[in-house]
Simulated scan of single mutants.
Amino acid sequence: MLIGANMVREAFSNDGDDAKQQDLLAKMDVRSMSVLALTMSLDALAVDVSLALGHRLVIWWAALSAALVSLAITVPAMFAGHRIGHKIGSKGGAILILLGLFELLQYYKVL
Rank of each mutant, 00 (worst) to 15 (best):
L57W: 11
L96S: 02
W61M: 15
A37H: 04
L105M: 15
L71N: 01
G85V: 01
A52C: 04
G16M: 00
A72H: 02
L24G: 04
A44C: 07
H82A: 13
Q21S: 11
S90I: 06
K109Q: 15
S70V: 02
I3C: 01
S41I: 07
H86W: 10
S13N: 11
L68Q: 09
Y108E: 10
A44R: 07
V49D: 05
S34A: 09
D48Y: 02
I3Y: 00
F79C: 05
G89F: 02
L2A: 07
V110Q: 12
L71C: 10
L105E: 15
A63I: 09
Y108W: 13
K109T: 13
G85M: 06
L104G: 05
L105Y: 15
L25E: 10
N6Q: 11
H82F: 08
L51F: 11
E103F: 08
M40L: 15
Q22S: 13
L2K: 02
L101V: 08
N14R: 15
L53T: 06
V69F: 00
R56C: 06
R31A: 15
L64Y: 08
D17I: 05
E10C: 05
L25I: 10
H86I: 03
V47M: 02
R31P: 03
A5K: 01
F79Q: 10
V8L: 02
D15A: 12
M28R: 12
A67G: 06
Q106L: 12
R56N: 12
G54A: 13
W61Y: 14
K87C: 08
W60T: 12
V8S: 01
L53P: 00
D23A: 15
V58Y: 07
L51W: 06
D15H: 12
S32N: 05
A37N: 06
K87G: 11
M7F: 10
G81P: 02
Y108G: 04
S65F: 10
L38A: 12
S32R: 11
K91G: 07
L45W: 04
D18I: 11
L104K: 05
A80H: 03
K27I: 02
L105W: 15
T39N: 14
V69D: 00
A80P: 00
S65R: 10
S50W: 06
A80Y: 10
A94V: 14
A66W: 04
L105H: 15
V30H: 11
I95M: 03
L98R: 14
M40K: 07
F79K: 14
K109D: 14
G54Q: 11
I97D: 00
H55R: 13
V47S: 01
A52T: 06
I73K: 04
A46L: 10
D43K: 09
R9P: 00
P76V: 11
A26P: 00
S34R: 01
K87D: 15
K20P: 00
A80G: 04
A63C: 07
L25K: 14
K20C: 01
K87L: 13
D17E: 07
H86V: 04
G85E: 02
L64A: 14
L98W: 12
A80E: 05
A26I: 01
A44N: 10
A19P: 01
I88Y: 02
I59A: 03
L101I: 09
D17M: 07
L51R: 12
L99C: 10
L98T: 13
N6Y: 09
D29P: 06
